[in-house]
Simulated assay, not measured.
Amino acid sequence: MTSASEAYSMATFSSFLPHPPPWRTSGVAALVDHDRPGGNVHDRASRATLLARIAALLDQPLLGLLDVAQAACTTALLVPGEALEAPVARAAGIADRQGLLGGIVPALFIGTKAITHGLVDEQAVCPTGWSFAMSRLLGDAALPGYTAFTQADAARAGRLLLAKGPVRIKDVCGKAGLGQQVVRSAADLDAALACEDVADLAEHGIVLEEDLTDVVTYSVGVVELGDQSIGYWGTQTLTTDHKGRDVYGGTELHVVRGGFAELAALALPDRLAQAIRCAAMFDAAAHAAYPDIILTRRNYDVIEGTDALGVRRIGVLEQSWRVGGASGAEIAALEAFRAEPETRQVRCATVEVYDLVTPPAGATVYYRGVDPVVGAMTKYAMRYA
């Protein structure tokens, strides 16, 4: 059986990168469900700009939006908005990692926050295909916590965690820091869990983990696109939306050619080296626990913060195996490396502001307008160094 240290060694010295795939000649397209267009106006506009940048980077035609049936008739590079379940990927004609930018998972829950933690005990309810090895392989790469698929299991897990301090309850499908709340007592826990839909809980699960304060959130990842692969670490920023909530405000990335091995070789402060180590361990554990996953875009949110005892902790919060908030910066880095073959490192960023602002000169604007749902917003990406 693979230990956590062995998993880290696997991740550090093997970046899970294949030989460069052949070019996909028919173009670049978003894989969508035409009957259920995903995201708000700013999400769709951002995706359209991202697709155009990817197509230009690869010197491929831009095909726009394709559904599963349409995609099956092409040899396009497909960019889904979420990690794909394996049957959907097969129906879309994706035979291997050459066919997409994102991820393919055997079951929906594997692409969510649910796999970040183990179950409260061996009697806990879990979906078919759940790996009991994942939490063991993770070791201390994630914060103390549990995943539950029933209210009863969640209540037991929450009480165990409350004995050590406040507990954060998280929607496993939540994005941009939304769908979360902190409870500090068993009464608050029970009240929060009573609001959960039983059927939704059984299908998706819920995460409960120790709450940290005074936090910094890092992004660590690897992207394979065309004949290039990049690895990066970065820090996320928060901003305030029009409802006064703290939400995702962008990511600044330090990007190198290669993958986890190249990131591990960097001379970085201990906290950053540990964040990279945690992300690499999570990546290796996921590949070992769920060997059928196919990933070409792997991003891990890693938190550093103070626990209830005053100890600084670092651990993976979640994975993102789809294009996401940092993808604009990832493409900017890939563009820089393609234009400058001798360049080994670059610094790029994405920025999201809930206002109409003028982006700096040289920025790629992903959205600037008034979204009917979220209000005025400006999103852009740029290279700083």
Score class of each variant (00 low, 15 high):
H254V: 12
E262K: 11
E304N: 09
G310K: 12
G103E: 11
A186Y: 01
D371C: 10
R97W: 04
G81N: 11
S5Q: 14
A261N: 15
R322M: 02
V223K: 03
I294Q: 15
D59N: 11
G305H: 03
R257W: 02
V220N: 12
P21H: 10
L143Q: 03
E196A: 14
H34T: 11
D227H: 10
A385K: 06
G38P: 00
M10T: 11
P106E: 13
A163N: 10
V198E: 15
A142H: 10
Q181H: 09
R344K: 15
L57T: 01
T378P: 03
T364P: 00
H19E: 14
A273C: 06
N40A: 10
E352T: 02
L101T: 02
Q181V: 03
P37E: 07
D200Y: 13
T74C: 13
D307Q: 07
L143C: 02
T213E: 15
K175E: 10
T235L: 10
L77G: 05
H34D: 11
W321V: 10
A11R: 06
E252Y: 02
A95F: 13
I94G: 04
L266P: 01
Q345M: 11
F16Y: 15
L317H: 02
L17A: 03
T378K: 08
T25P: 10
A265L: 13
I94D: 06
L143K: 01
A332Y: 00
R313L: 01
A92L: 03
F149M: 09
A48G: 03
G328F: 04
V172D: 00
S131C: 01
L50G: 05
R298I: 06
L238V: 07
G226C: 01
T49A: 14
R53P: 04
G93K: 13
E85V: 14
I206Y: 03
R298H: 06
T116Q: 15
S3H: 06
V105I: 15
A29K: 05
A194N: 13
E352C: 00
G129T: 00
G369Q: 09
A76N: 08
E330C: 13
E82M: 08
V222N: 05
L309G: 09
A76Y: 07
Q70L: 10
P80W: 08
F149W: 12
A91N: 10
T239V: 06
M281D: 09
S26I: 01
V182A: 05
R90Y: 04
I54T: 11
R257G: 02
V370N: 12
N40G: 08
H254A: 08
V120G: 05
